[in-house]
Design a protein around this nucleic acid. Structure first.
Length: 195
DNA sequence: CGTACGATCTGCT
DNA sequence: GCAGATCGTACGA
């Protein structure tokens, strides 16, 4: 079943990042639906988090969506090449988001193979935030899409995600964030541990 | 208007 | 392990 508004509006973005492990991300393009089990996430905790685009209350056209209530996509261009997909969480005017860093392909694998120009399973097939978007066909033009609609959405498919196998580490690629670079905001579970 | 840079990936060594 | 790709965004002049 689809995740509810209440799920996205929980105040603690780190908790939401943890709960998203094992949930399923769907993306429809034309008549094709692709989906993957979320296996890696990172929390970005708004204005107090030096690694966040909203640090210090920065509010621009790009980051405006982060200031809405939870339940929207925030997708942006990174390094001029890659789209990176985030789930906006929390209350209105409290900018928080969870970056989806890896999924395990579940639906539409042939389409994902075409987009990725490689066969599943290949190392890094849909691991890494840029690869996730490429596999699922997500583009930064789709930033601001409601996750309650039928284009991009998430479901709880009852996939077991045993906390004993959950790895919690610092985030990737945010060394510029000073002490915040060491926060334990990254969650990851190896695919072999999904039920 | 100019410029520096990034929540990365790939291919080559 | 490392360099190159590639461009929208943010910010200062």
């Amino acid at each position: 079943m689809k995740l509810t508004r209440e799920f996205y509006r929980e105040e603690d973005v780190v908790s939401v990042a943890k709960k998203l492990i094992g949930k399923v991300l769907f993306a429809k393009s034309g008549k094709t639906i692709c989906a993957g089990i979320i296996s890696e996430t990172e929390a970005y905790n708004g204005i107090y988090d030096r690694a966040s685009h909203a640090y210090g209350g920065r509010r621009t056209a790009r980051t405006e969506i982060m200031y809405r209530e939870g339940g929207y996509s925030y997708i942006y261009l990174c390094y001029g090449i890659h789209s990176l997909f985030n789930v906006v969480t929390g209350r209105k005017d409290v900018p928080q988001a969870v970056l989806i860093r890896a999924v395990l392909p579940l639906l539409g694998i042939a389409e994902m193979e075409r987009r990725r120009k490689r066969k599943f399973p290949a190392k890094g097939f849909s691991s890494g935030p840029g690869s996730v978007c490429q596999a699922l066909g997500l583009h930064y033009r789709q930033s601001g899409t409601s996750l309650s609609g039928n284009v991009i959405w998430l479901e709880d498919r009852g996939i077991a995600a045993d906390e004993r196998h959950l790895q919690i580490t610092k985030r990737i690629g945010v060394e510029y964030a000073g002490k915040d670079a060491h926060l334990p905001y990254r969650f990851r579970m190896d695919e072999v541990h999904f039920g």
